[in-house]
Structures are given as C-alpha cells and as structure tokens.
C-alpha cells in the first residue's frame, strides 16, 4: 500500500515539475514574443514619423509662399513689377527645400539602424524556434523511451506518455505561431525597406527641388523678368507617380503591423 502511495506521490511531483518547467519557460517566451511585437510596432511608427514633422512644416511654409505669390500675380497689372517680391519668396522657398533635403542623411542613418535592429529581432525569433525544436526533441525522446518499454512501472509510463504527448502538442502549436511570426517579420522588413526607400526618394525630390529653386532665386535676383526666373521650375512637374507610390507602400506596412498586433501566443496545455 505504501509503495503504491509513494509511486502516486512521485508521479504527481514529476508531472507538477514538468508543468512548472513548461510554464516558466512559456512565460519567458511569451514575454520575448510581446517584446518583439512591441519593438516592431515602435520601429514602424518611428520610421513613419522621424523627420516628417519638420519636413511637413517646411512644405506648409512653401505652400503659403506659392499661394501668396499667386495672389500677388493675380493682383499685379504688370508681372515684372513684382520681381523683388518674387526674388525674396523664391529665396525662402529654396531655403525651406534645402533645409528639408538635409534631413535625408538623418533619415538614411535611422533606416540603416532600424534595418539592423529588425534583423536582430528576426534572429531572436529564429533562436526561439530552435529552442522550442530542442524541447520537442527532448520530449520525443522521453516519449519514445516510455513507449519502447524502458520504463517498467506501468503507471509512471502512462503518465510520461500522456504528459509528453501534451507537451509536444503544445510546443508544436508554439512553433507554428513563432514560424508564422518570423514569416510576417520577413514580409514587414522587405515592405518597410520599400517604404523607407520611397521616403528617401521623396527627400531626393526635395533635394533636387532645392537646387532648382535656388537657381530660380538666383535668376530672380538679376531683376530682369519674372517669367524668365520661373520658367525652369516647370521641369519638376512629373512626380505624382512617386507620391502615389509612397502612400500605397506605407498602407501595406500598416496592414502588416495590424496583422502583427493581432497575433497572440496561445499556449495549449501549459
């Protein structure tokens, strides 16, 4: 009778320790999963915003300057009479574009850093999958040993088989979720790279605008003709396609981030 009680007690302790071990490890992985998720959301939010407010303010100033110039042109009887005003407004517009273009270097540095950090998170994700694979291998070995009859005590064998089967199922569910997470991160990294390139292209457009407007401002300073000064500005008209692409690429990034936000790490049987 005592032997039977001891066996039951040892079995209960074994099952308990197995469960506690799984739970502690699962909590650690859950924290890691949540931490990576949070990092991805923050990184995308940063990439969408770094330098944007400053550039936006500069472009709003340029918009106001263009509108003021148009109003002045509409009121003027002879457009060449407003050459002084045009000269100073073009100087402001060029300066604003130049200031915005300088952000390109900072944005590129931020992008490089973000890409390296995202690659680091993917490595962490793959390491987590490998750790889970190792756990599956250990449980499978124990399961095989029990099934092969290495353990003679039938009660203990039954518990080991049932506990390890449950553990393996749970681990495989986790591996599936982590693997999906890794694939989503891969998709996010490439989409984000595309979107940040679009931002770089936009800043490149601003850089070229800065050069063109600076030369137009220099021409206007010669105080000859308004039309002569503004003539070359029309060359930069065809950037609508670039701008439309940028909006679409960020929408895709937002979509992936939405998917990541909805992903939960569910632990079956732990």
């Amino acid at each position: 009778m005592w032997a039977r009680t001891w066996r039951s007690l040892i079995s209960a302790v074994f099952l308990g320790l197995l469960t506690i071990g799984q739970q502690a490890s699962a909590d650690e992985l859950t924290n890691q999963f949540e931490s990576i998720k949070e990092f991805l959301v923050d990184t995308v939010a940063d990439s969408q915003r770094v330098g944007a407010a400053t550039t936006y303010a500069l472009l709003r100033d340029n918009l106001a300057a263009f509108r003021a110039l148009k109003a002045r042109v509409d009121q003027a009887t002879r457009i060449d009479d407003m050459i002084d005003e045009l000269s100073s407004e073009l100087d402001i517009i060029a300066s604003n574009f130049e200031q915005a273009a300088r952000l390109r270097v900072d944005y590129a540095a931020h992008t490089t850093q973000s890409e390296a950090q995202l690659a680091g998170k993917r490595r962490q994700t793959r390491d987590a999958i490998l750790a889970l694979d190792r756990k599956v291998a250990i449980s499978q070995l124990e399961l095989q040993q029990a099934q092969n009859g290495t353990i003679t005590d039938p009660e203990r064998r039954k518990i080991i088989i049932s506990a390890n089967t449950s553990v393996i199922n749970s681990l495989q569910t986790q591996i599936a979720i982590w693997s999906q997470f890794e694939k989503t991160q891969h998709r996010l990294a490439s989409t984000l790279q595309l979107s940040t390139r679009k931002v770089d292209l936009l800043l490149f457009v601003l850089e070229k605008n800065a050069q063109v407007y600076r030369e137009a401002a220099n021409t206007a300073q010669l105080r000859q003709s308004v039309r002569l000064a503004l003539n070359n500005l029309q060359a930069l008209g065809a950037i609508e396609g670039t701008l439309a692409d940028l909006a679409a690429s960020w929408q895709e990034v937002d979509q992936i981030i939405g998917e990541i936000g909805r992903t939960e790490l569910g632990y079956v049987g732990s």
Binding site: L59, F66, K70, V73, G237, A247, W250
Partner: peptide, 28 residues
C-alpha cells in the same frame, strides 16, 4: 505627422506651383 502627411503636403505644393504658372500664363 507621418511621411504620408508630408506626401500630401508636397502634392499640395505641386498643385500650388501649377496654379501659380496658370496665373502667370493668363497674365502674360
């Protein structure tokens, strides 16, 4: 403010620039 907002702002600048040229051409 995001880069999408900057994108819209740049589109508005482009539109304002074209409107300025239209006014200039009409005046000329």
């Amino acid at each position: 403010i995001t880069w999408q907002d900057v994108n819209i702002a740049l589109q508005n600048v482009e539109t304002a620039k074209l409107e300025l040229f239209q006014s200039l051409n009409a005046k000329a």
